[in-house]
Simulated assay, not measured.
Amino acid sequence: MAAENHSTVTEFILGGLTSQPELQLPFFFLFLGIYSVTMVGNLGMIALICLNAQLHTPMYYFLSNLSFVDLCYSSVTTPKMLVNFVSGKNTISYAGCMAQLYFFLLFVVTESYTLTVMAYDRYVAICRPLFYNIIMSQRTCFLLLAGVYVMSVIGSNIETIILSKLSYCETLIRHYYCDILALIKLSCFSTYHIDMIVFSLAGFDIIVTSLTILVSYTFILSSIFRIRTTEGMSKAFSTCSSHFAAMGMFYGTTAFIYLKPSTASSLAQENVASVFYTAVIPMLNPLIYSLRNKDVKAAMQKTLRGKCFKANVITLS
């Protein structure tokens, strides 16, 4: 195919998850179910935290932000994928592709730094409990989240600008969304330097955040093992287990995809890993935090009891 620069590319073709027609409809209903559970779970978590005063603490302030981010970055990719399952023409405009890439990168990086801030919050709660309210003040929480979004905006801007300057010789994206690695493979020229920039940026985000989390949990575990009572240890572990599970799932898949050369794994492997962290993890996070957190379960029961009581009053009146 003759070389053409990016200004002549008006749209891309998304390869999708499968080329087998008989799987399109089952996949549509599967991912529609996953997306519906994701919407209900994350919106429900945000509403639950807003409506219950006992959850107005830094930990749940960050958790509500995590639910918002999960909601957003799942919405960046899943609706378009659902349309493609039932559409005969799986195309996306050049501007739409760059916009999808930008917002996907924005929310994925935000998720990684939000998980890091949550690890720091757990460190303060367990290792410095007497100073928790002083250290994790409203101002500190606001500044931490502001820093999270500043880092994500910087990273997503740099990578999107780089990709928008590339010349593309092909228009078939062998993926179900505009991922940075899939777009790099369409370039007319050598992308070694771009691979290195993407690898460096992704490596910086993953390594810095994971090291911060590792240090935080090293101090947390050290403090937990010094607790003399079984009840105290169990309570301390319960406050961290949900976050640790969410963090493990997210970092495991993102490290597999981005901390390697773009040609180091098969398309099928990349698709499976991408589906896991773009669709499955945003669905699982609110379930993990609600099922393994006593405060959330208590608030949920209180809210449901309140709704049932109001419904009974209305019915009797």
Rank of each mutant, 00 (worst) to 15 (best):
H193W: 07
H193E: 14
I194P: 00
M196G: 03
V198T: 05
V198D: 02
S200P: 02
L201G: 01
A202Y: 01
A202I: 00
G203E: 04
F204C: 09
D205P: 03
I206C: 05
I207H: 04
V208L: 10
L211V: 09
L211T: 08
L211Y: 12
T212I: 11
I213F: 05
L214T: 08
V215N: 01
V215F: 10
S216E: 06
S216F: 15
S216M: 04
F219R: 01
S222W: 10
I224A: 06
I224H: 13
R226F: 15
I227L: 15
R228C: 13
R228P: 07
R228A: 15
T229W: 14
T229C: 13
T229R: 10
T230V: 13
T230E: 11
G232I: 04
G232P: 03
G232S: 02
M233H: 07
K235G: 04
K235R: 10
A236T: 09
F237W: 15
S238H: 06
T239E: 11
T239G: 02
T239Y: 00
S241M: 14
S241I: 14
S242D: 11
H243W: 07
F244N: 05
F244R: 07
M247Q: 14
M247S: 10
G248Y: 00
M249I: 07
F250S: 12
T253H: 12
T253P: 03
T254G: 02
F256R: 01
I257F: 02
Y258T: 01
K260A: 05
K260Y: 00
P261D: 03
P261T: 00
P261F: 00
P261H: 01
S262N: 10
T263D: 13
S265I: 13
S265K: 15
S265Y: 11
S265A: 09
S266L: 03
L267E: 08
A268N: 09
A268E: 14
A268P: 02
A268D: 11
V272M: 15
V272F: 14
A273S: 09
S274G: 10
F276W: 11
A279W: 05
V280L: 15
P282R: 00
M283I: 04
L284W: 01
L284H: 04
L284I: 08
N285T: 06
N285M: 11
P286M: 00
L287K: 04
L287A: 13
L287I: 14
N293T: 10
N293G: 08
N293L: 03
K294T: 08
V296K: 03
K297M: 14
K297L: 14
A298C: 06
K302Y: 05
T303Y: 01
R305N: 06
K307Y: 14
K307E: 10
K307W: 15
F309A: 10
K310A: 15
K310F: 09
N312I: 08
I314C: 10
